[in-house]
Write a protein that binds this DNA or RNA. Structure first.
Lengths: 130, 130
DNA sequence: CGGAATTAAATGCTTGTGCATTGAATGCAG
DNA sequence: CTGCATTCAATGCACAAGCATTTAATTCCG
């Protein structure tokens, strides 16, 4: 049994992750004033129409801790991209909802996001070179 | 042209990264008192015999900024796993070298590292199920 | 040779993150 | 109904990471 395979693919994963994340951070930050996690959250919320999410749900989606997400939401809320709503059935829970501004910013940033991914993730996907 | 492919593979990459990184952090931390980046640096230095590396070189290897690595080295140095040596040819440069203790800790942690990778990264590699 | 531009690494500062705790609301058992 | 355990989200706290700056040594060019 050769661990080398796994180690290699882990290293490659790390490299791809670092490169892409970094590029996203730069592009999204410079052009739209968003961090990668910010975008990821908006992206998730923009996907569905109702747009009501529990904090923990979002935390799982973007692979952040509950506390990190709580603060992230606070920042987005302050920026007006998201709002918190009391949820009637369970009053300790909170519904996070994307605002119109949020949808707008997300829509603006989306092409940038896709572009970076295409540029940064494409090379190793299918072999394009004949 | 469908961006969905790229987006999906990015999300999968994020998920794999988060899961694996998290597991490594926990296991390496609990069992050996090492962070993932700590291990990554030691792992890199343990590979070669001479074991002399420039700071920037290591920074590239583990995908961290130069400043982050400078402090990381400081921590490892304080822990006695690594030492800094003046490099004679260029006196602003620094050679970082793994110590015997460092090699020892690395050797101890290596099985844990491999185990986590095998467990956490295997599922999606080759299809084992017939 | 001497001064300007460059490079290596360290440090000040700010920020995002995780862990642990807290506070509030719910659920469950007696 | 009362009390205890559980759950959701927010907050205190500590820390690692990146950016910008600093300090020191080197290189380049006149």
């Amino acid at each position: 049994m050769d661990d080398t395979d796994v180690v290699d693919s882990w290293r490659e994963l790390l490299a791809r992750h670092a490169t892409t994340w970094c590029a996203l951070e730069r592009e999204l930050g410079d052009k739209h004033g968003l961090g990668v996690s910010d975008f990821e959250v908006l992206d998730h919320m923009a996907e569905s129409d109702h747009g009501k999410y529990r904090v923990q749900e979002l935390a799982d989606a973007v692979h952040l801790s509950q506390s990190a997400l709580s603060r992230l939401i606070s920042r987005l809320e302050k920026a007006g991209l998201v709002c918190r709503n009391m949820c009637a059935e369970d009053r300790r829970g909170v519904f996070v909802q994307i605002t119109e501004d949020g949808r707008h910013r997300h829509a603006e940033a989306l092409p940038t996001h896709r572009a970076v991914l295409n540029h940064s993730l494409a090379p190793t996907k299918p072999s394009l070179a004949p």
